[in-house]
Simulated scan of single mutants.
Amino acid sequence: MSFTPTRRVFASSLIALAASGALAQSGYPNKPIRIVVPFGPGSGTDVVARIIAEELQGELGQTVIVENKPGANGTIAADLVAKAPADGYTLVMGGSSTHSSAPSLFKNLPYDPVTDFTMVGNTVETQFALVVRAESPAQSLKELTALLQAKAGKGTFGFGSATTQIAGAALMKRLNLNVTPVPYKSNPLAITDLIGGQFDFMFLDLTTAMPQIRGGRVRALAVAAPARVSELPQVPVFAEIGVPNFTLYSWLGIMGPKGLPEPVADRLANAMTKIMNKQTVKDRLAPTGKPIPPVARSTYPAYLREQRDGWAGKIKDAGIQPE
């Protein structure tokens, strides 16, 4: 069948439109980009996001804005980005709270953590410490356990993320203690009430915890890691104080909505690879956790499924029921 002149014109127009779309994508970015952070300012996720935003700005030659959208264990921010236009201008600093544990914590999660996102680069794995306020009589996990036992079910712990909720619940189950969890929109908000004596303990990522520890406002009793960490060499890991195999890491990564055009996704992924290979960036990220080496973008769906399934097991072991 031969084209009529009208069909030829129509076909040429489609080709021209496709070409212009490709050119627009290859010109990405031509306006500011925003990275939505699921937790409040000062959180570990926020600190990492701001380092990455500054570096991306240099790599992409475009303004990169960090926007905090805390709430619902980070799922408000993740859902916002999942439903954003797939053009590369709205990204999220996702991670263990929003993409690994959320499917097991919420019965009706409004997004699929694997299929509704295009992941373009990992950043760090973070570690967590068990902390109490400086004025707490508990100088060790043993003393904290005795304190909570004496409260006979009236003890409390705060949390501002899914990972810290899971850590607290898992430890209480291991110690056979009945303690009430108190939720916050982000960990920095919870710290204020911890210092004020509103609850007994909490878990904190080291990025958020260290300024409070150095300032003498909170005390670390243990670190959920396989070996002592350089930031807190005097603080034992749980295995040293009678709680074996109690470790906790969370990951953070940059992602956009599903369906990002390949040129855009590749541009972001290449920029993230350059950033994460810089020694200066590794040094800047080191206090926030262990930088994760760049990997091929094609491996991320499998990585997200693996993390989701692994955290599902942690949540089950902690005895947390989905909301």
Rank of each mutant, 00 (worst) to 15 (best):
G94R: 09
T115C: 00
A146S: 14
F128R: 11
A170T: 10
N178Y: 08
V182P: 00
Y111E: 03
V92G: 01
T164H: 09
Q165M: 13
V124C: 06
S100M: 09
V92D: 10
T145D: 15
V120T: 11
A146E: 14
T156S: 14
A170S: 14
V120F: 04
D116I: 01
N122L: 12
A129S: 12
P137V: 04
A169I: 03
L105G: 03
V81H: 02
N108E: 14
T164P: 06
P85K: 08
E143H: 08
K154C: 01
G153I: 10
G121E: 07
L171E: 08
P137I: 05
S136N: 09
D79T: 13
S96T: 15
G158V: 07
V120I: 15
M119H: 10
A162S: 15
E125N: 14
K151G: 07
D87L: 03
N178K: 15
L141A: 04
A146F: 04
L147K: 14
F128P: 00
G153N: 11
L171D: 08
V131D: 05
A170I: 00
K154H: 15
T126I: 07
F159G: 01
V81F: 00
D87G: 08
G121D: 05
Q127P: 00
S161M: 08
V179L: 06
L105P: 03
M172W: 02
K83I: 01
A169P: 05
A162D: 12
S101G: 13
M93V: 01
T118S: 15
E125A: 13
